[in-house]
Simulated assay, not measured.
Amino acid sequence: MTQAVLSGGRISAGRWEAELKGSGPTPPRIEIWHRERQLDGVTAVVAAQAGTWMVSVPIPVAELSDGVQTFLVQDAATGARLGQFTIIAGVAIEDDIRAELDLLRAELDLLKKAFRRHCVETTG
């Protein structure tokens, strides 16, 4: 059996929805996870094309907060990741990315200094 494929994801009226194409007569059981918690209310409704379903889930208000929230979509039987969707709220993403990039650069500089010091100490 080939892995199901998600496409066309969107958020509308507090629900995430996407088209799921599979190879069997029934849709795979889909799980959606956010911060190690599984979301309730995932549905899969037969679409017009055979082997295609419209998957949707309500996005709980409690899961929304400032920053970037990533929701993982997976096949419950195999654990295979089928996709993800992201919600950005509050602080502008440009600020978040710049801050993360600055932090990564600072950590990289520390690692480079420590590595150079280690090389000098072990070779000398």
Score class of each variant (00 low, 15 high):
M1H: 15
T2G: 07
T2I: 15
T2M: 10
T2H: 14
T2P: 15
Q3N: 14
Q3P: 11
Q3W: 05
A4L: 13
V5C: 07
L6H: 11
G8A: 06
G8K: 10
G9I: 06
G9H: 00
R10N: 04
R10H: 04
S12L: 12
S12R: 12
A13C: 02
G14I: 00
G14R: 03
W16S: 01
W16N: 00
A18L: 07
L20K: 11
K21E: 08
K21C: 06
G22C: 07
G22R: 08
G22T: 08
S23Q: 11
P25I: 09
P25W: 11
T26W: 08
T26F: 12
P27Y: 08
P28N: 09
P28T: 12
I30D: 02
I30Y: 05
W33S: 07
W33H: 06
R35E: 15
R35V: 08
E36I: 03
R37Y: 03
D40Q: 12
D40N: 12
G41H: 02
G41C: 01
V42R: 04
V42A: 02
V42D: 03
V42E: 00
V42T: 14
V42S: 03
T43H: 02
T43P: 01
T43M: 11
V45L: 03
V46S: 13
A47D: 09
A48Q: 09
A48P: 00
Q49G: 00
A50H: 08
G51L: 13
T52C: 13
T52P: 03
W53C: 10
W53L: 11
M54A: 15
S56T: 01
P58G: 03
P60N: 04
P60M: 08
P60F: 02
P60K: 09
P60Q: 03
P60E: 01
L64C: 02
L64Q: 10
S65E: 12
S65D: 11
D66S: 15
D66K: 08
G67M: 00
G67P: 00
V68T: 11
T70S: 13
F71L: 05
L72F: 11
V73A: 03
V73R: 02
Q74D: 03
D75R: 07
A76Y: 01
A76L: 01
A77R: 13
T78A: 03
A80S: 10
A80W: 13
A80E: 12
R81F: 07
R81W: 05
R81Q: 14
F85E: 00
T86G: 02
I87G: 02
I88C: 04
I88S: 08
I88Y: 04
A89P: 00
A89M: 05
G90N: 08
V91T: 14
A92G: 14
A92T: 12
E94N: 14
E94W: 07
D96A: 10
D96Y: 09
D96C: 06
I97N: 10
I97S: 11
L101G: 01
D102R: 09
L103K: 10
L103F: 05
L103G: 10
L104W: 14
L104Y: 10
L104Q: 10
A106L: 05
A106H: 00
E107T: 01
L108E: 10
L108G: 05
D109T: 11
L111N: 08
L111H: 15
L111E: 12
K112I: 13
K113P: 00
K113M: 11
A114D: 14
A114P: 04
F115R: 12
R116Q: 13
R117A: 12
V120M: 13
E121M: 05
T122F: 04
T122H: 14
T123M: 15
G124I: 00
